[in-house]
Amino acid sequence: MKILICLSNVPDTTTKIKFTGDNTQFDAAGVQWIINPWDELALTRALEIKETSGTTIEKVTVLTVGKADTEPTLRKALAIGADDAVRIDAEPKDAYQVAAQITGFVKEQPYDIILCGIESSDYNGSTVGGMLAEFLDSPSVSSVSGLFLENGQIRLNREIDGGQEVLETMIPFVAIVQKGIAKEPRIPSMRGIMMARSKPLTVKPAVAADELTGFTAFELPPPHAKCKMIDAENVGELVKVFRNELKII
């Protein structure tokens, strides 16, 4: 079996978010780029499965849609343990376009298990994985917090409101994974970093794909205001905040 992990290259989660061009573009100056945290957990789980299932998993490939400046992210994934990497040479602009690019590649080189993170920490789309599954006409399981391969059978745990489901699925399939899929991302070893030098990183030309959406403007939320005081006799006000603003009830 072969596993493909779709990686997004995102700004480090501690990045101070700024925009340029009259608030139409994310300001990437001085930004440190990382593997999207959910995608990194997906990679971790894929490697765990590969290591514990004998020879069942032939290879673990990582893929990103992006220009050459995303290659350090792919090489980090190789250092962590992926067998090879693919970069589709297109500027990612819209989930539909990105999913179409990945589809082009997978139709050419099929994979049995495709893993995508449930969202990317930049534009918070939660979209590419599902779109890819539909383009490929594959089954998909989303919000996956557990993925197991036992005697060639796939079992998945899926988070639902207030609980969890256990599912089985046919191969090939797309799993859209979230926290819990692996404990924590791996730290690359010196050997891994050294071996990453000689692992293949293939650049594929972009295929024709439509962009159906685009961000036209951004704004920053208003600055942190002074603590708003609520009267102790009027806790209902706070409950309104819980509901309307914080959305926790």
Binding site: P11, T13, T15, I17, F19, S121, D122, Y123, N124, E211, L212, T213, G214, F215, T216, A217, F218, E219, L220, P221
Partner: peptide, 13 residues
């Protein structure tokens, strides 16, 4: 967008 750090205006074409 950016996990609550900003708001984006997205155009669907």
């Amino acid at each position: 967008v950016f996990t609550g750090k900003a708001i984006g205006h997205i155009t669907i074409k």
